[in-house]
Design a protein around this nucleic acid. Structure first.
Lengths: 97, 97
DNA sequence: CTTATAATTCGATATATGTCGAACAATCAA
DNA sequence: TTGATTGTTCGACATATATCGAATTATAAG
């Protein structure tokens, strides 16, 4: 759990998380299965809004994936990302009771 | 929000949070008002379970208070701590939707 | 096969963080 | 007032982290 919070403690990683949260809402069919997703978020697109270089974005994505917050899948030249819904459920439960 | 997650990202601070969570459950009347609390948690008691020195515990408590996760109140020689219930609500909402 | 685009890896570096010991402050009890 | 207990403040230091530029890999398009 500490690792998950650490991942979300960096402002740029939190922005990535929020961006993915708004683009890929739980309950939206296919959003967690990129083969049918209607609204994907590529790493390059995420990086454009972050005022940091590509190596840094890559590092942050790697970290978010390491702790299980996001999942990724190559789509041609790009790599698509989405939030793992299980983690969000876990986190909500963590703050319940 | 990043600050809150950073506060919870340190293993010792997370242990303090969990300890306070189990000793001071939401819904327990008076637990957030030390003058009527039936189960208080003093800084010294928290420190005994943490394998770090008193200055470090003090530092962590300060940080948790700075970001609004806990509240404190002096009770004689001791200082009592408890979790701010509003923050927990905020966090649960954050991971909802 | 060559070029362009997207992303990762690798070092380097500056800054932030966690921890400690020593000294200090605050409260209570004789 | 003196002594004991509890917690804070202050430097110091070692480690962790965020970031960058340069080089590298992977995929797609001519």
């Amino acid at each position: 759990m500490a690792d998950i919070f650490k991942a979300l403690s960096n402002p740029n990683r939190l922005k990535i998380f929020l961006k993915l949260s708004t683009c890929c809402r739980p309950g939206t069919e296919g959003i967690y299965n990129m083969s049918t997703a209607v609204d994907t978020m590529f790493i390059g697109d995420l990086g454009k809004e972050l005022a940091v270089g590509k190596p840094t974005v890559s590092h942050h994505i790697k970290e978010l994936r390491r702790v299980g917050i996001i999942r990724t899948e190559r789509r041609g030249q790009n790599i698509a990302c989405w939030i793992d819904p299980d983690i969000i459920d876990q986190l909500r439960v963590f703050f319940t009771r």
